[in-house]
Write a protein that binds this DNA or RNA. Structure first.
Length: 469
RNA sequence: GGUCCCAUCGUCUAGCGGUUUAGGAUACUGGCCUCUCACGCCGGAGACACGGGUUCGAUUCCCGUUGGGACUACCA
């Protein structure tokens, strides 16, 4: 499998957190490489010193790790690879494919404005193209792009795309401060790292012919391209902070499971018939660029929430018990008991859409003194249930095996003796035990709480009712 | 403005000329289950942007219109 040499990469620029659009691009590259036994490289594009930060880099790596998108090589940092770019630029100049240009940005602005006024394209006019100039302070290096003909490539998701070369101008390869521009750095990196499949957002479609021209000038083989459609916000514009949570880490903090996000991202733009749920292994096995759609899509947060709820209720209690403490801590529960954590997970997993929600619902298990919800208190903790609770508590205290099955048996006899229905005791009991009118099944709750605590909570409710009267 | 890309229920999508009364998911909604709330199960409403072709036959192919998006920097 390792013989087919597929190399993909994900090259975020560390100008902010990893957002879900970037995460999906990373996922597609990762899936493609994993499926074909190839290599997945992580590269940090930090050539813009002004906007890059270490903090952003750390957030990106943390996001990738949380999602489980492991990389085989890197992270490479472009800022540490300037020698490589310089050597490629030298190669281009020596081959006569690039030239030094002495035009200043100010001159360029003026000439561009003039061209525009005349209704011409505002591209570089080629003034220094044939002058044979050498390097000078403030000069840049430009690619000598063909002035006629066309550049075509066969995109793996969009099909054949053609550009007229006269639409492209002599783009700058090396800035006046000696640093490489984006196009130069990307191409040099992808060549030197052996990247042969470039899967990226379709905002790069227009950049592709420029980069292909650099490959051609260098005489290097052109990689395969796959441009995946963008992810849009609910208002159908490019996803941004305005649209609320877009950061991968934000979803982690909101109590989402990494796999729910992965599954959701995979299904945004890609499909496999009618299937909605995929395990990680299934994604690797079934992913294909051919089934990536061509049109941009709106990120559906509701569907992600539903998937998250699904994966939570499918998860093993032990796993959830491990994930829960950080969220409980945020609610003031410092050292939750292991047994209760599992109990909470088991009884709450069908009722929680996120781990945050689960932690909130689980609070009553860990509080000694549950706070009675106002409505429940008023409606169910009334003097007329005093005898019922008292008698019940008496019977419960006599139990030797305090578990779900035994409790159910005891209640059948108890209800029979009292000639009442379960509904009559369940709600008052629920409020007594959990403080709320909504909770997991009453037998499950008692099972998790254990005999001592159940009894103590009932006694406390009885005292509370008496105190009210 | 120019260039490039895109267009099926609100949203994500299946569909790759006839098998379609256009399927699934989500959200919404009616019911069942039931100790509350969920879960689960059954049902409902909801889409091929428009106009021309091509064809015996277009959601599917071609062209145009409209709409949306991207790019157009010594940002990435």
């Amino acid at each position: 499998m390792t013989t087919d040499h597929i190399v993909t990469r994900f090259p975020p620029s560390p100008t902010g957190y990893l957002h879900i659009g970037g995460a999906r691009t990373a996922l597609f590259n990762w899936l493609f490489a994993r499926q074909r036994g190839g290599k997945f490289i992580l590269r940090i594009e930090d050539t813009d010193k002004e906007r890059s930060s270490d903090q952003a880099t750390r957030a990106i790596l943390e996001s990738m790790e949380w999602l489980g998108l492991d990389w085989d090589e890197g992270p490479y940092f472009q800022s540490e690879r300037y020698d490589i770019y310089t050597s490629y630029i030298e190669r281009l100049i020596e081959a006569g494919q690039a030239y030094h240009c002495h035009c200043s940005p100010e001159e360029l602005d003026i000439r561009r404005a003039e061209a525009k006024a005349k209704g011409l394209k505002p591209k570089y006019d080629g003034k220094c193209r044939e002058l044979g100039l050498g390097p000078a302070p403030g000069s840049v290096v430009r690619l000598k792009t063909p002035q006629w003909g066309e550049t075509q490539f066969n995109d793996m998701v969009k099909g054949a795309i053609t550009f007229n070369n006269d639409e492209l101008d002599d783009l700058i390869l090396k800035r006046s401060d000696g640093s490489p521009t984006y196009h130069m750095a990307v191409v040099a990196d992808d060549i030197s790292l052996g990247v042969n499949y470039i899967i990226r957002g379709d905002d790069h479609v227009n950049n592709t012919p420029r980069q292909i021209l650099i490959y051609k000038a260098l005489g290097e083989p052109i990689p395969q391209y796959a441009h995946v459609p963008m992810i849009l916000g609910p208002d159908k514009t490019r996803l941004s902070k305005r649209h609320g949570a877009t950061s991968v880490l934000a979803y982690r903090d909101m109590g989402y499971l990494p796999h729910a996000l992965i599954n959701s991202l995979a299904r945004l733009g890609w499909s496999h018939g009618d299937q909605e749920k995929f395990s990680r292994e299934e994604l690797i096995q079934k992913f294909s660029l051919e089934n990536v759609g061509k049109s941009a899509g709106v990120f559906n947060a509701e569907k992600l929430l539903d998937l998250n709820a699904y994966y939570i209720r499918e998860a093993a209690d032990e796993n959830l018990a491990v994930l829960l403490p950080p969220f409980l801590k945020g609610l003031g529960i410092e050292a939750p008991e292991e047994k209760k954590l599992k109990g909470a997970a088991s009884t709450l997993k069908a009722r929680s859409k996120t781990l945050v929600e689960m932690a909130e619902s689980a609070l009553f298990y860990f509080q000694d003194q549950v706070k009675y919800e106002e409505n429940g208190d008023k409606k169910f903790l009334k003097p007329d249930v005093l005898d019922l609770l008292n008698d019940l508590n008496g019977s419960l205290k006599k139990m030797s095996d305090f578990n779900h099955a035994e409790l159910e048996k005891l209640f059948i006899t108890f209800l029979d003796e009292k000639k009442i229905k379960l509904g009559k005791v369940a709600q008052p009991l629920r409020v007594a035990l959990t403080g709320k009118t909504v909770s997991p099944g009453i037998f499950e709750v008692m099972d998790v709480l254990g005999k001592e605590e159940v009894s103590a909570r009932i006694s406390r409710a009885i005292d509370h009712i008496k105190a009210k009267a």
